Simulated assay, not measured.
Amino acid sequence: MTETDGWVRTWGAAPQAPGAAVAALEPFADATLRQQVRISGGGRRVRVRFTNEYGTAPLTIGAARLAPAGTGHPLTFAGRPTVTVPPGAPILSDPLDLPLPALARLDISLYLPGHVASCTVHGRPVRAGWIAPGNAVLAPTPPADATPLPARALLAAVEVLPDGPATTVVVLGDSITDGFGSSPDADHSWPDRLAERAAQTGRAVHVVNQGISGNRLLNGGHGDAALARFDRDVLATPGLGHVVLAIGLGDLAISYAPRGDDSPLAGFLTMFPGGPVTADDVIAGYRQLTARAREHGVRVCAATLTPYERDDMFSSGGETARTAVNAWIRGSGAFDAVLDFDAVWRDPERPARTRDGFHADDVHGNDAGYRALADSIDLSLFR
């Protein structure tokens, strides 16, 4: 193994374009951004992937710092403390020799001296962050003039060099994967809980959450469609061994949702372009992702689509399509494993809806619901 081999991704947030679909940052200049992440698995070296992939102009990083457990370490780029990232591009920091345990929390700071008009984001911050005027990368706590960050900003991934063989599991999904409905700043999405279970058993399994709230398999709207972002968000992942496909419910729910000018959904549905899709279309999309993953030697798991009867988008046609997709996921033999999330969440008396105690709203889980999904997964699948 050379010094450039063996890297694995241990945390991620799928990049999105700023706009109406996400809580975008207003243009700013001469400011520091600080964000906290919790990695999944540990390692002896670490590097950070920043992103200007939806930026419209070059992005200058004037200083960057990584601070675990109250300490601080400057990040460099080709040995220099500053770098300019072209629009449309990501950038990796230089590796930092820093032993990190599984589930370590990291504060990552960026000083941006120039004008940032279009900031690549991830729509759900999950852990609190802040933005403050000037260069505050050394500040131990938020300055008095700091304000909260409404979204992840310019931060795409953390990668580590583990002490031995390890694998990364990437979860490609929508808001249920993203953890919408779970307690804020608590790391209670189901991929977070899966990472905790792996760490507790000593498995060298790193879990990366590439969910985007409102994302769909076949069409864009809230983030690029899963088919469009699959190479970047999944196949380009260092150490990738497994992908979990947990997407498609939004495609069907939106396609079959009640429509009409007087519908309460009329304004909401305008954020989702593209024509209606069928169960067969979603199945074809799954086949595409599976074929592309297997070209890279990646094992593929699929999660069944969870109930949504309480939601305004529910319809009998959508439920028929959801049931058909789930039957295919369970019985087709197309996947290396099936995660039957529908069976975990459905109400035995009303299988089209989520059982009481597991839902935060009409679609999404609460902390208990997400924990139940993660706890239902056989960790031996990820070898």
Score class of each variant (00 low, 15 high):
Asp5Gln: 08
Trp7Asp: 03
Arg9Asn: 09
Gln16Val: 10
Gln16Asp: 02
Gly19Glu: 13
Ala21Asp: 10
Ala23Cys: 00
Pro27Cys: 02
Arg38Tyr: 00
Gly41Asp: 10
Gly42Asn: 07
Gly43Gln: 07
Arg44Val: 12
Arg45Asp: 02
Glu53His: 09
Tyr54Pro: 00
Thr56Ala: 13
Thr56Lys: 06
Leu59Phe: 06
Thr60Arg: 15
Gly62Trp: 05
Pro68Trp: 12
Ala78Arg: 14
Ala78Asp: 15
Pro81Ala: 14
Pro90Lys: 03
Pro90Cys: 09
Ile91Pro: 02
Pro99Leu: 00
Ala102Ile: 02
Ser109Val: 01
Thr120Phe: 05
Pro133Phe: 08
Ala136Lys: 11
Thr141Arg: 14
Pro142Asn: 13
Ala151Leu: 08
Leu154Cys: 08
Ala157Cys: 03
Glu159Met: 01
Val160Lys: 04
Thr168Gln: 06
Val169Gly: 05
Val169Lys: 02
Leu172Glu: 03
Gly173Gln: 04
Ser175Leu: 03
Ile176Arg: 09
Gly179Ala: 02
Ala186Trp: 01
Ala186Asp: 14
Ser189Thr: 03
Ala195Ser: 14
Ala198Thr: 11
Val207Asn: 10
Asn209Ile: 03
Gln210Val: 09
Leu217Lys: 09
Asp224Trp: 02
Ala228Phe: 00
Asp231His: 13
Asp231Leu: 00
Val234Leu: 07
Val234Gln: 09
Val243Glu: 11
Leu245Lys: 12
Leu249Cys: 07
Ala253Val: 07
Ser255Tyr: 05
Ala257Ile: 09
Leu269Pro: 08
Thr270Ala: 14
Met271Tyr: 09
Pro273Thr: 08
Asp280Asn: 10
Asp281Ser: 13
Ile283Asn: 03
Ile283Trp: 03
Ala284Gln: 08
Gly297His: 08
Ala302Ser: 05
Ala302Glu: 00
Thr304Gly: 07
Arg310Ala: 15
Asp311Gln: 10
Asp312Met: 14
Ser316Tyr: 07
Glu319Pro: 11
Ile329Val: 15
Asp342Ile: 05
Asp342Phe: 04
Asp356Trp: 03
Asp361Leu: 08
Asp362Thr: 13
Val363Lys: 01
Asn366Glu: 10
Asn366Leu: 06
